[in-house]
Computed example of a mutant assay.
Amino acid sequence: MSDCPAEKINKLQADFMKINFSIRYHDGSANFNGLNMYYGADSFGGMSEVVALTTHAIVNNEILKQTPSTKGFSLDFKESHEGSFIQKFVLEFTSSDAISVINYLSVEGFMELLNFHISSPLGLNPKITIDAAKRWFRSYMEDSEELLDRLARPLERIHHPVSGQGYQVTLRKSRTPILSFSESTLDYLTGKEVSDRSEELIVAVSRFNARTGTGRFIENEDADSVSFSPPKAGIPQRSKRLLANSLRALVDDQFLPVRAEIRRVLSRDGRTKHYLVQGIYEI
């Protein structure tokens, strides 16, 4: 029977494993007057790559070089929309491993991780607030900084209708806007200037990958984190221990700072995008 309780439960579980998105191209610095096919195709290809690579990294703890190698989920077109150009697509988790991760995170937790990795390179700095997502990010996404680097090119592709036609692009979950891609986000993504001046900061570590020497610093417990990378010669073992100790303390809700000698990588509007580490010292 169609109203069988077991069938209703199975349908609810199936719906829980699907996330409906849409990408909308609309007025920006110019009024919408049709989407150029080349710009639109490149932009949507970039969006597909960003969502697929980030989802794969979240559920499989692996950074891929090729998007078709993703596993555990599918990413498919839905029906198109009349009027201002809106394209719907659906992310469906299909493997038992991926479903297990989403059951642990919740859809809301997954969306926080997805939004963090898409938004951070654009200078938007969303917070990860759900406990399960925080734990997953700290414990299983140690290659997060590598993922952010990998997303730079497809994020630039998403902006093609922005640079080419003056439009704005909005990613939505169902009907709820998640983030918009605009001239300001493109400017932040593509513009950078490395400061010639070295300076010292008192910071704690909120992320650290001992293998790559990359991570994130915070200046206080409520501050936005900023990514850092090591010098070409790498980080000495003593410095790695200081960074790892600071991270462990933060996980235990203790703020254990280090003294970091850095150079700033700045956006065109003067915001700090990244730190180039010159040295790490005990306080």
Rank of each mutant, 00 (worst) to 15 (best):
D3N: 10
K8F: 07
L12R: 09
I19E: 05
F21C: 00
I23N: 01
R24D: 10
G28K: 05
S29H: 07
S29R: 13
S43I: 02
V51G: 01
T55L: 03
I63F: 12
L64E: 00
T70I: 15
S74R: 12
S74D: 13
K88W: 08
V90R: 11
V90H: 07
I99G: 04
I99C: 15
L105Y: 07
L105I: 04
L114D: 02
N115F: 08
P121S: 06
L122I: 06
I130Q: 12
D131S: 15
D131V: 15
D131Q: 13
A132H: 09
A132L: 06
W136S: 00
W136N: 01
S139K: 13
M141I: 03
E142F: 09
D143V: 10
E146W: 08
E146I: 14
L151E: 00
R157C: 08
G166T: 01
Q168Y: 07
L171K: 03
I178L: 13
E183Y: 12
L186D: 04
D187K: 12
Y188H: 06
D196N: 12
A204P: 10
V205G: 00
S206H: 06
N209I: 04
T212E: 03
F217R: 01
E221T: 13
E221Q: 15
D224H: 14
K232M: 11
L243F: 05
A244W: 07
P257L: 00
R271Y: 05
V277A: 04
G279F: 04
I280M: 02
I283S: 10
